[in-house]
Design a protein around this nucleic acid. Structure first.
Length: 362
DNA sequence: CTTCGTATCT
DNA sequence: CAGATACGAA
């Protein structure tokens, strides 16, 4: 069930970093591996692009420390509302930095300086997302990455609240919605208060009450609406008390890697003619190194440097949050893969200490 | 007195 | 469900 070329060749990546040189470099590498890439030096630009049209990008890559807008707010919004996997990158490889990004929904965290292989393999995040969404191979073979090619051409409700008098029930058109969301994010989710939002939006006729109501809904959405963070914390709570290693239930299923459904990229996933391969890339499924950050259990890793070591361990699943059962499955899937357990989260006691830093060479 | 946040209503 | 209203807490 080799994946059609379209899969990889059509991956569209949005890159955000203030460092123009880095952007150029990334673009180059992206081209090399046949990604379509668009780069921005400002978060706000990226935001406008993403909000403008749907399904433009399959993956977002963003520097954690941006100055024009908060990267984490952006991260949260993109992962939760727009549902595009986001990889955060930064030179700060500290545990807290990594955890923050992962907590906020990042599917991966790249510690700078970046390596080519990171980019080469980043398509797998998209693949995983598709698997997770139960998109079958057949569907993808239609040559579609974005299964939802449908354009949002829903009837435009033209009764803009701007013209309508107060007191009327406000219909939040998609446009208004976008404007609202953008404003909230720009304002920083915590500091976004109805009045400030209202002022910033500057929409005639719109009242603070309208905005307040909208804000309440939006916050609810963020919370319940699949806040991975939430799930994660729940799971961890369970995991710490009973350190059972369940392989079926989603006991440890935090983050994007759904252990219950094990969306493992199969060995034969990568077609021999995989477009991302440089010419001389020999096709061996097993040459894809795997490494993980494991947060469901914990053990101060040998040294903080262990995190930094990650970056030379290129490849699939960087910093993935997974459970032990998942690791064994992966081990089975990728016999020669290198799986590292790096226990990150300080507040999750390790069930046992047998392999805090062990490298599984299978 | 104004604004927020939350619960509750429609 | 999405938006409005009510009301106590800041």
């Amino acid at each position: 069930m080799a994946l059609p070329q379209q899969f990889s060749t059509h991956i569209r990546v949005l890159v955000i970093d203030h460092d123009i040189n880095l952007l150029n470099a990334i673009e180059k590498v992206c081209y090399k591996f046949n990604y379509k890439v668009k780069s921005c030096s400002k978060v706000s630009d990226a935001f406008n692009i993403l909000l403008g049209k749907k399904n433009i990008f399959d993956l977002v890559l963003i520097e954690a420390k941006m100055n024009d807008m908060d990267s984490y707010g952006f991260l949260q919004h993109v992962t939760q509302q727009i549902n595009i996997p986001v990889i955060m990158m930064c030179d700060d490889g500290s545990r807290s930095a990594v955890m923050k990004a992962i907590d906020d929904g990042a599917c991966d965290y790249w510690i700078k300086p970046l390596t080519e292989s990171l980019i080469m393999n980043m398509w797998q995040h998209v693949a995983r997302k598709l698997w997770k969404e139960n998109k079958n191979i057949e569907l993808m073979s239609e040559g579609v990455i974005n299964t939802s090619v449908k354009q949002e051409s829903v009837e435009k409700n033209n009764d803009k609240p701007e013209s309508s008098t107060n007191k009327t029930r406000v219909k939040w058109s998609p446009e208004m919605n976008i404007k609202f969301i953008r404003t909230v994010v720009e304002l920083n989710i915590d500091k976004a208060t109805p009045k400030k939002i209202l002022e910033r939006m500057n929409v005639p006729g719109l009242t603070r009450e309208h905005v307040a109501s909208k804000l309440q809904k939006y916050r609810l959405e963020l919370k319940s609406g699949g806040t991975k963070k939430q799930k994660k914390q729940n799971r961890i709570a369970e995991a710490t008390t009973e350190s059972k290693i369940s392989n079926e239930s989603s006991e440890f299923d935090f983050q994007a890697y759904d252990a219950s459904t094990l969306h493992v990229v199969p060995n034969n996933f990568m077609p021999t003619n995989f477009p991302h391969q440089p010419n001389n890339f020999s096709h061996q499924p097993n040459n894809v190194p795997i490494k993980f950050y494991q947060t469901d259990s914990e053990e101060e890793t040998s040294s903080p440097a262990s995190i930094n070591q990650q970056q030379d361990c290129n490849g699939f699943g960087t910093n993935s949050i997974i459970n032990p059962a998942f690791i064994s499955t992966l081990n089975a899937q990728f016999p020669n893969a290198q799986v590292r357990n790096v226990y990150l989260a300080q507040h999750y006691p390790s069930p046992n200490s047998n392999d805090s830093t062990s490298t599984y060479d299978l």
